[in-house]
Measured scan of single mutants.
Amino acid sequence: EEERTFTNEEEARKAKKEAEKRGLRVTVTKDGTTWRVRIG
């Protein structure tokens, strides 16, 4: 499991799409101005 943080919503969405392409489970949460993308 890996967690990545982004300040840019577009980049967070891109990371989510890429992980889904690899067949991984992805959770995206917004924490104030930060987007957290949890993969795995």
Rank of each mutant, 00 (worst) to 15 (best):
T33K: 12
K30P: 03
V28C: 11
E1R: 08
G40T: 14
R13A: 10
T29Y: 11
E10I: 10
K17R: 13
A15F: 15
R25I: 12
L24P: 00
E3D: 07
E9L: 11
A19D: 01
T34Y: 14
R22K: 10
T33N: 15
W35Y: 06
T5F: 13
N8R: 06
D31Y: 06
R36H: 11
E18A: 08
T5D: 06
V28G: 00
K21H: 09
G40M: 14
N8G: 03
E1N: 08
T27A: 05
E2L: 13
V28Y: 03
D31M: 06
A15R: 02
F6K: 01
G23A: 02
V28A: 01
G40E: 14
E11H: 05
T7A: 08
G23C: 06
E18N: 06
E3Y: 09
I39R: 00
E2N: 09
E18R: 04
T33H: 13
K21M: 14
N8V: 06
V26A: 12
K30N: 10
T7N: 11
R36G: 02
K16Q: 15
V26D: 00
T29F: 11
R38I: 15
A12V: 05
R22P: 02
V37M: 05
E11P: 01
R36Y: 14
R38A: 10
E18D: 09
V28L: 14
R25L: 10
G23V: 01
T34R: 13
K16Y: 11
T27E: 08
K17W: 12
D31V: 11
K14F: 09
E9T: 02
T5S: 08
R38T: 14
K17T: 11
A12R: 00
E20F: 03
R25A: 08
T34K: 12
R25F: 11
K16H: 08
K17D: 13
K14D: 09
L24R: 05
A19Y: 13
E9F: 13
A12C: 15
G32L: 02
K16D: 01
E9R: 07
R25T: 11
V37R: 00
E20K: 04
T33E: 15
T5W: 14
F6P: 01
G32Y: 01
E18I: 07
R25G: 03
W35G: 12
L24M: 09
I39Q: 02
A12P: 01
A15E: 05
R38D: 06
A15H: 07
A15L: 08
K21Q: 11
N8F: 03
E11V: 02
K14A: 13
K14M: 11
E1G: 11
T33C: 15
T33I: 09
R22W: 07
N8T: 13
E10P: 05
E1H: 12
